[in-house]
Amino acid sequence: MSTERDIRFTAADFRRLRQMLYQRVGISLNDSKSHMAYSRLAKRVRQLGMRQFADYLDLLEKADDEAEWQHFVNALTTNLTAFFREPHHFDLLRLHAMERVTQERHYRVWSAAVSTGEEAYSIAMTLLSLPQLNRQRLELVASDIDTRVLSQAADGVYDAERAKMLDSSLLKRFFLRGVGHNAGKVRIRREVRDQLSFYQFNLVAAEWPDMGRFDVIFCRNVLIYFDKPTQAAILQRLAASLQPDGLLFLGHSENIQHLSDAFQSCGRTAYRLVNHNVRR
């Protein structure tokens, strides 16, 4: 490890950290993430007056402090997102919704790793732009394991720079511009924020709450953090959470070939549920 680091962080510490993260939330850090782990946790270790990572890891294991564990998990999860990232997914979502909204039931979508909220609000803007979709029959659920980003998502406040590439009609309809000390910020309108329900959710939890079945699930850039057996288990549960012929959207680098026979490709990193008999 680098001698320039002011906090002792050994190869053994990193192996231990990886094992603790895996046991806690199922995330598997690869060997290249040592520097990332140090940079994200070092500030917290300093705040606690410690000079070596081993002491911090001891604290986590011995104190069993839920708040400290949450800080640990929050620091080591990645939250890269943007409005309408992977735009082809939203084109498919629009078409799928237009096929389904003629039915007399709710249209339900789950953003399973919502991060700071841009994905969930992109889903909401796409669906609320459909004239044939009654707002009262739309249910949007957003979840993440990271409590810090969930709070940001629920607030719906962003630097205006993050929304500058959006169509002007979307900005006018769905956003408020900040004034005074909020200049340079935008906020999602309340009627859009109220359309969403936000929950903390761990995809590798022993038990999933009964949320019913969804028409569409977005679970993008999440599976890459798990090993193959965990990926397969999550996919089985996602399949069991979808309506017949429901859609699953994954990240651009995620490939579920050989991991599940419940889905059939229907576009770039887009899959349709074809095995309707999957059980959790």
Rank of each mutant, 00 (worst) to 15 (best):
L166C: 07
L130K: 12
V114F: 02
F90Q: 04
S129H: 10
K172R: 07
A163T: 14
H96Y: 01
E118Q: 07
P131Y: 04
L80V: 14
Q152W: 03
R187W: 09
V101P: 00
T116L: 05
L93N: 10
E191I: 08
Y158L: 00
F84D: 11
A205W: 08
L150Q: 06
V73E: 01
S151Y: 00
V141F: 15
L93S: 11
K172G: 05
S122F: 06
R148Y: 03
R137N: 09
S169N: 01
L150N: 00
R189H: 01
A160S: 06
V109A: 00
V157M: 05
L92A: 01
A112E: 08
G156M: 00
W110F: 08
K164M: 03
R193C: 06
A142S: 06
L80C: 00
V149E: 01
R189Y: 09
A113D: 12
R135Y: 13
S197H: 07
D91I: 12
S115Y: 06
Q103V: 05
G184Y: 01
L93R: 15
G178C: 08
N134D: 13
I145K: 06
L166D: 04
Y121L: 09
R137Q: 05
A112I: 05
A206S: 14
F90H: 05
V141R: 02
Q132Y: 01
A113Q: 01
A97K: 01
F174Q: 02
F83A: 05
T126I: 13
H96L: 07
A154C: 01
V192S: 10
A142Y: 06
T126E: 12
L170C: 03
S129G: 15
R187Y: 06
W208G: 08
V179K: 07
T102Y: 10
Q152S: 00
A206I: 01
H71Q: 04
F175H: 01
I188G: 08
M125R: 01
M165Y: 05
E104S: 08
V204E: 14
R105T: 03
Q195L: 13
K172E: 13
R177G: 05
F201R: 08
G117W: 11
V114A: 15
A75Q: 03
F90W: 04
T81L: 05
R187D: 12
R100N: 13
A124L: 03
L196T: 08
R193N: 02
R187P: 13
E104Y: 01
T147H: 00
G180L: 03
Q195R: 15
I188Q: 11
L138T: 04
L170F: 04
T147Q: 04
L127P: 14
E207R: 14
F84K: 14
L127W: 12
H89C: 15
Q152N: 05
W208D: 13
A124K: 08
Q136H: 06
A142E: 06
P87H: 02
G156D: 07
